[in-house]
Computed example of a mutant assay.
Amino acid sequence: MVTATNVSGQFFQPYNFEMFQDLRPFLEEYWTTSFFIVLIYLLLIIVGQNYMKTRKGFNLQGPLVLWSFSLAIFSILGAVRTWGYMGAVVHREGLKQTVCFIIHTESTTIKFWSWVFLLSKVIELGDTAFIILRKRPLIFVHWYHHSTVLLFTSFGYKNKVPSGGWFMTMNFGVHAIMYTYYTLKAARVKYPSLLPMLITSLQILQMVMGTIIGILTYVWRQDQGCSTTAEHFFWSFVLYTTYFILFARFFHKTYIRPKVKATAKSQ
């Protein structure tokens, strides 16, 4: 049987930058720092909104374009590398290999993108700063999703949860499209009108697929060598369920309700 490591060797030779020193020991040791970061993040939201309450919002078009473009390129690169690797493993070994067994997480490519992905969740908190400084509406799903994703990513990384590879891979894929859209919008470049709806739909699909993977992990947990815990299953199920509800509600409020009202008025 071809192992996941061999698949990586045959199809995904790591680039030089992917062989950068592994930060796993450091990030595992200080994973609880994510709780402190989230606390500071939430406090800064309160302070920032109070500060901007009596002030005019900043333009920040240039910095926002650069910010969104940088995250778009990063997400595209991450999506290409992780989707390619995970797809190769699934093709050669089956889905269970990527969901249960820790061997594929030892790939040089996956190890690199895993710790970079974790650090990116800290950097992406900066999205909220642009919303506050530009005095745009800050909805609950935004800051809840940003803060809990950081905590869950830190928790999964510390425990080397194999199914976390799919959490990372799907997130990279959605963010590659989402930040590209943000870049176009910030640069005031015309984009397909259905693009925002597509992104929200993909986010909802991501929650559905994440829940399915979580259930499969729970079903396969008794198999010899299947590396998972009831604790991880519980928290992944809770988070994916809340994400699904919040994004589905956002989809209905943003795209369905306005159409229903418009139809009612025309009648």
Rank of each mutant, 00 (worst) to 15 (best):
residue 239 L to F: 04
residue 18 E to S: 10
residue 137 P to F: 02
residue 118 L to R: 08
residue 68 S to G: 11
residue 67 W to I: 01
residue 193 S to T: 00
residue 10 Q to L: 13
residue 255 Y to H: 05
residue 259 K to V: 13
residue 253 K to T: 11
residue 17 F to S: 09
residue 93 E to Y: 13
residue 174 V to Q: 03
residue 123 I to C: 08
residue 257 R to A: 13
residue 137 P to C: 02
residue 102 I to R: 10
residue 64 L to V: 02
residue 28 E to A: 12
residue 240 Y to V: 08
residue 36 F to M: 14
residue 266 S to G: 09
residue 112 F to T: 07
residue 73 I to S: 14
residue 230 A to Y: 15
residue 192 P to L: 00
residue 190 K to C: 12
residue 74 F to L: 15
residue 117 F to E: 07
residue 95 L to C: 05
residue 139 I to M: 12
residue 177 I to Y: 00
residue 172 F to D: 00
residue 259 K to I: 11
residue 162 P to K: 00
residue 230 A to K: 09
residue 207 M to I: 01
residue 27 L to T: 13
residue 214 G to A: 02
residue 188 R to W: 06
residue 16 N to W: 10
residue 211 T to M: 06
residue 173 G to Q: 06
residue 135 K to S: 06
residue 9 G to S: 15
residue 1 M to F: 12
residue 129 A to T: 11
residue 125 L to W: 09
residue 43 L to S: 14
residue 245 I to T: 12
residue 209 M to V: 09
residue 227 S to N: 15
residue 154 S to T: 11
residue 207 M to C: 06
residue 94 G to F: 02
residue 49 Q to G: 08
residue 172 F to W: 01
residue 117 F to Y: 12
residue 219 V to R: 10
residue 140 F to M: 05
residue 123 I to W: 04
residue 2 V to M: 11
residue 104 H to R: 01
residue 250 F to T: 11
residue 113 W to P: 09
residue 17 F to N: 12
residue 63 P to N: 05
residue 158 K to R: 10
residue 224 Q to F: 15
residue 56 K to S: 14
residue 225 G to H: 06
residue 21 Q to F: 15
residue 9 G to A: 15
residue 40 I to G: 10
residue 219 V to H: 14
residue 31 W to F: 12
residue 239 L to H: 10
residue 13 Q to Y: 15
residue 9 G to F: 14
residue 170 M to A: 06
residue 74 F to E: 15
residue 55 R to G: 02
residue 88 A to W: 02
residue 48 G to C: 00
residue 7 V to W: 04
residue 20 F to P: 09
residue 19 M to C: 14
residue 203 Q to E: 13
residue 85 Y to T: 05
residue 85 Y to K: 04
residue 145 H to G: 03
residue 162 P to Y: 05
residue 99 V to Y: 15
residue 200 T to H: 05
residue 252 H to W: 13
residue 265 K to E: 05
residue 131 I to C: 00
residue 257 R to D: 13
residue 105 T to G: 02
residue 199 I to E: 11
residue 69 F to N: 12
residue 205 L to A: 12
residue 57 G to D: 08
residue 132 I to D: 00
residue 215 I to H: 08
residue 205 L to Q: 09
residue 259 K to R: 14
residue 180 T to L: 11
residue 61 Q to C: 08
residue 241 T to W: 07
residue 224 Q to V: 14
residue 84 G to M: 09
residue 212 I to Q: 01
residue 190 K to W: 03
residue 225 G to P: 03
residue 31 W to P: 03
residue 117 F to K: 01
residue 212 I to P: 03
residue 223 D to N: 12
residue 104 H to G: 09
residue 52 M to A: 03
residue 88 A to L: 07
residue 15 Y to M: 15
residue 67 W to T: 04
residue 212 I to C: 02
residue 109 T to V: 01
residue 155 F to Q: 08
residue 211 T to E: 01
residue 11 F to Y: 13
residue 80 V to R: 11
residue 6 N to K: 15
residue 213 I to T: 01
residue 67 W to H: 01
residue 238 V to Q: 02
residue 83 W to A: 08
residue 220 W to T: 04
residue 2 V to T: 11
residue 118 L to V: 15
residue 153 T to Y: 02
residue 101 F to K: 07
residue 21 Q to A: 15
residue 220 W to H: 05
